[in-house]
Design a binder for these strands. Structure first.
Length: 586
RNA sequence: GCGGCGGUCGUCUAGCCUGGUCUAGGACGCCGGCCCCCCAAGCCGGCGAUCCCGGGUUCAAAUCCCGGCCGCCGCACCA
């Protein structure tokens, strides 16, 4: 026994980590140099597993919603202006102080708020330092002197090109790429809302002190969608496609100390105002189904509403999707944020570009409005070189007010320093045809961490049955789909089995050939990395051309004709084998 | 970032307290061979360890001391 599990109550996590390293799912990066925390390599099996999870995500969020969602890919390195606009430069940072005696680090603003009751939100580090000095605030733990307040920003900084002034950052989320490319994608997608823009890509966050192995990384793959819609006409999500029940723990419950999520129908959650937005709820339902395919049961996941102070600066309602794993308890695998029009509005402001959407009315509306007509020749003669300024000012005044002034017989209109004679102005009622309206779309965002899902799927699938340790990975995401063995390693078994193996890989199905050791050992090796099916070429194969196919989870065998194998696999690899009761760890 | 504990073949571990007998032992794995076998059987042979890194003490360091890195736990932090 290589695993030393017999008779031990060894933590499942440790068995999993050991298996992950030994068989090549993942391990800490840069090990030969001692390692750096927050970074993990994916090994051969981990790479395949993650690829399958990516594909599954794409299937759920893009392919199954091809009429609503399109994919993009945008750079990791992002110029500074983007994060100025998005607020990350300012808000992705915490003011911290360190105790000069015991070394403990504290959030400076929180410390002052606790000590003095002052609201110091938004103050600069210097101002916070000042307050700490003036109020004589000391380390709350040891009473030691505190350092100057400094800002710690979680963005990784770099330079773009040779000029030090061209600062760039590694993106901490993929979202900004969808916002900065929104105008073009929207056009490409033939200018219709609602529209989801999805992206799978790497992001980086300079975490202060990452822990929890694969759960909290400094660089990871995010699978994210920004779903844009018209806030006045959001459209109806296809609840018939993905609906069902959601387990939700509301912020209100949490404030009352209630920790038990309640179950709602998706539409009910919207109707009751639990989830403030139908699309947010819809994508949560899709998320639940997606995560279920990774082997997570309905009872093992719920959505936790974040409290206002827990939310990101851009969000007005956020739910985290939590999944229970063996070592870490409830772990966040996805975030569902209602970002309103915050991001697009910010980019409109900073870029000066028009990122609004035009939506035509079914019938053009005719609206009567008042307009100020200016006799420019009078203004020109009167104000000479100030005339353009005056004309501009006149364009800004409210026509209704001007009309009132004129009706009251006013002789002049006072515009700052300028006195404009009313003869130069008249009010006209004009008819305007309004064919539609412009607005900034609102956004809901479901966002997943791919490596966390890799970890979750392994944690959920690891089964211990006495000495037998294996992965009950759902066939859809299993890195290797089928193992092919000759019962005996000599000819003609070997040759026959290898030929079958070759035809399977040639058909695009990931397979594994093994002829070393006893047949039982080979089954065990295959089970340990979660290969769902094992095919054996035996004596009977030589007589009638049939092979045995063994099911990893039940160890049952059936016989199939060799020529049927690929078709049979195609069909059976699509089946979701995971029966959650069976998946329980003994 | 702080405090506690830890880091030895691919993996798990013995040794460390009480320095030398450790060119570091075992198990499993892996590779080759035998066996020709349907659930980790057995036999033979082989590969495999900068004892986390750096410095110090000592005639002598896996072992003692200091610093660093990494991991776990607690505190803090966490979009």
């Amino acid at each position: 026994m290589g695993l030393n599990v017999e008779g031990s109550d060894k933590d499942k996590y440790e068995i999993l980590m050991e298996l992950a390293k030994r068989r090549g799912f993942f391990w800490p990066s840069f090990e030969i140099y001692g390692g750096v925390s927050g970074f993990y390599d994916l090994g051969p099996l981990g790479t395949l597993l993650k690829e399958n999870i990516r594909k599954l995500w794409l299937e759920y969020f893009v392919v199954k919603h091809a009429d609503l969602v399109v994919p993009v890919e945008t750079p990791m390195i992002t110029p500074e202006i983007v994060f100025k606009a998005s607020g990350h430069l300012e808000s992705f940072t915490d003011p911290i102080v360190q105790c000069l005696r015991c070394g403990r680090v504290f959030r400076a603003d929180k410390l002052i708020e606790e000590a003095t009751g002052m609201n110091v939100e938004g103050l600069k580090p210097g101002e916070l330092t000042q307050i700490i000095k003036e109020r004589g605030i000391k380390c709350p733990v040891c009473g030691g002197e505190l350092s100057e307040v400094r800002l710690f920003n979680l963005l990784f900084q770099t330079y773009i090109g040779p000029y030090k002034r061209d600062i760039g950052y590694l993106r901490p989320e993929a979202a900004q790429g969808m916002f900065t490319s929104f105008k073009r994608v929207f056009t490409v997608a033939r200018t219709s809302l609602p529209l989801g823009i999805a992206q799978i890509g790497r992001v980086a966050r300079n975490e202060i002190s990452p822990r929890q192995g694969m759960i909290r990384l400094r660089e990871f793959t995010i699978m994210e969608m920004e779903f844009f819609y018209d806030p006045e006409d959001p459209g109806l999500p296809p609840f018939g496609k993905f609906g069902g029940k959601l387990n939700i723990l509301t912020a209100e419950q949490r404030l009352k100390g209630d920790e038990k999520p309640a179950t709602y129908g998706v539409e009910e959650a919207v109707r009751e105002g639990i989830v403030k937005n139908p699309w947010l709820a819809y994508w949560m339902a899709v998320a639940k189904e997606f995560v279920k395919e990774l082997g997570v049961g309905e009872a093992e996941t719920f959505f936790e509403e974040k409290l206002p102070e827990e939310r990101a600066h851009y969000a007005t309602q956020t739910f985290d999707q939590l999944v229970r794993v063996s070592r870490w308890g409830w772990v966040e695998v996805s975030g569902h944020a209602y970002r309103g029009n915050y991001d697009l509005s910010q980019h409109i402001k900073y870029s000066g570009q028009d990122l609004t959407v035009f939506k035509g009315f079914e019938k053009a509306r005719v609206v009567k409005t008042l307009q100020v007509k200016v006799n420019k020749s009078v203004i020109g003669r009167l104000f000479k070189h100030d005339a353009p300024k005056v004309i501009e000012e006149l364009g800004n005044v409210d026509p209704a007010e001007v009309k009132r002034a004129l009706d009251n017989g006013a002789k002049f209109l006072e515009l700052g320093p300028f006195k404009v004679p009313t003869e130069a102005i008249r009010i006209e009622e004009i008819e305007k045809k309004i064919t539609g309206r412009r607005f900034v779309p609102h956004v809901v965002e479901p966002s997943f961490g791919a490596e966390r899902l890799v970890y979750v799927s392994l944690d959920k699938s690891l089964v211990r049955e006495g000495d037998r340790v294996y992965l009950r990975l759902p066939p859809k995401i299993a890195p290797v789909k089928v193992a092919v063995f000759p019962l005996l390693s000599r000819e003609p078994f070997r040759e026959r089995a290898y030929r079958l193996y070759s035809s399977i890989t040639a058909s695009g199905i990931m397979a594994f050939f093994d002829d070393s050791g006893s047949i039982g050992r080979r089954y065990a090796r295959a089970d340990e990395i979660g290969i769902p099916y094992a095919i054996t070429v035996d004596h009977q194969t030589l007589e009638d051309g049939t092979v045995t196919v063994r099911n990893r989870d039940t160890r049952e065998q059936i016989r199939l004709e060799e020529v049927q194998v690929i078709g049979w696999l195609r069909k059976n690899l699509e089946v979701n084998l995971v029966d959650l009761k069976m998946g329980e760890v003994k």
